[in-house]
């Protein structure tokens, strides 16, 4: 089998995606920058939030959905800012209505304003309700392997452990937990939150992650469009390195050139 056949598409809820980089659409300077960064990232799945319409303000302002064509992107509504099961479930139902029955959602139920860590207990409750209501749930969680497995058992289509707090850019804080989650999983595991730069993304992919969701890492870079491009490459590189099976680490040197034939 050729080496290149090892690199298969990402499959979530029965749909295939070539890009393993998922991108949020928040925090950009304006719609133009959002579009350019998404383009450069190569992302196919992008997250959107559901919020009250500003009535009477900016009547001519283009709706986000107008500049993000549904035939080009898979929209992933999230429950950003929800601290309760009720709010998260309401948000998902509104998103489904807004997007004409679209059932793929990203669930997050936050527990703490400073760290934005997920409330694991409420997340489990919300996941059960949403899965029972027919949603395909991709779920943001902490890096506890037991919670991750339980979310999979509930029926979530993908589990998304954080690398570090949302918007912190700290990179993978707990690689061995992420590794354990990946090893135990029968659904895609995507790192969500905390990635800061390209090497963080590559490290996540080298652990065996199926994909990465990021927003701040790109939007808050000095040059977001360039960072989007960097992330695209880092994720491709990290994935290939993982599939290639890295060499073992050794304590001592191992020469690369033969001894025979030396003329000195």
């Amino acid at each position: 089998m050729s080496d290149t056949n090892l690199n298969q598409p990402l499959v979530i809820a029965g749909n295939s995606y070539n890009s393993r980089l998922l991108v949020g659409t928040g925090k950009y300077k304006d719609n133009v920058e959002t579009q350019l960064a998404l383009e450069a990232s190569g992302a196919e799945i992008i997250t959107i939030a559901i919020r009250r319409t500003n009535i009477g303000q900016n009547p001519g302002e283009p709706n986000l959905l107008d500049i993000l064509p549904a035939d080009k992107y898979t929209l992933l509504p999230n429950t950003a800012g929800c601290y309760t099961v009720e709010d998260a479930v309401r948000t998902c139902k509104l998103a489904r209505e807004l997007l004409n029955g679209h059932k793929l959602v990203k669930l997050e139920v936050l527990g703490d304003e400073k760290t934005l860590f997920p409330d694991a207990i409420e997340t489990l409750k919300a996941a059960r309700i949403l899965v029972d209501d027919g949603f395909d749930v991709m779920v943001y969680t902490n890096d506890d392997p037991l919670i991750a497995k339980e979310l999979e058992n509930i029926g979530c289509v993908a589990v998304m452990p954080l690398a570090a707090p949302i918007g912190s850019g700290l990179g993978i804080r707990n690689p061995y937990n992420i590794l354990t989650i990946i090893e135990n999983a029968n659904v895609p595991i995507l790192v969500d939150a905390g990635v800061g730069t390209a090497s963080d993304a590559a490290i996540a992919m080298e652990l065996g992650c199926d994909g990465i969701l990021m927003n701040t890492a790109i939007a808050a870079a000095k040059h977001p469009v360039l960072m989007a491009s960097a992330m695209k490459k880092a994720i491709e590189g990290g994935r290939e390195a993982y599939l290639a099976g890295r060499m073992p680490k050794k304590r001592f040197a191992s020469a690369s050139s033969p001894i025979e034939g030396t003329f000195f």
Binding site: I48, R52, T53, L64, Y140, I166, A193
Partner: peptide, 10 residues
């Protein structure tokens, strides 16, 4: 009355 807007997490 709600709509979709740009958002990552939170």
């Amino acid at each position: 009355i709600v709509q979709a807007i740009g958002g990552g997490s939170y």
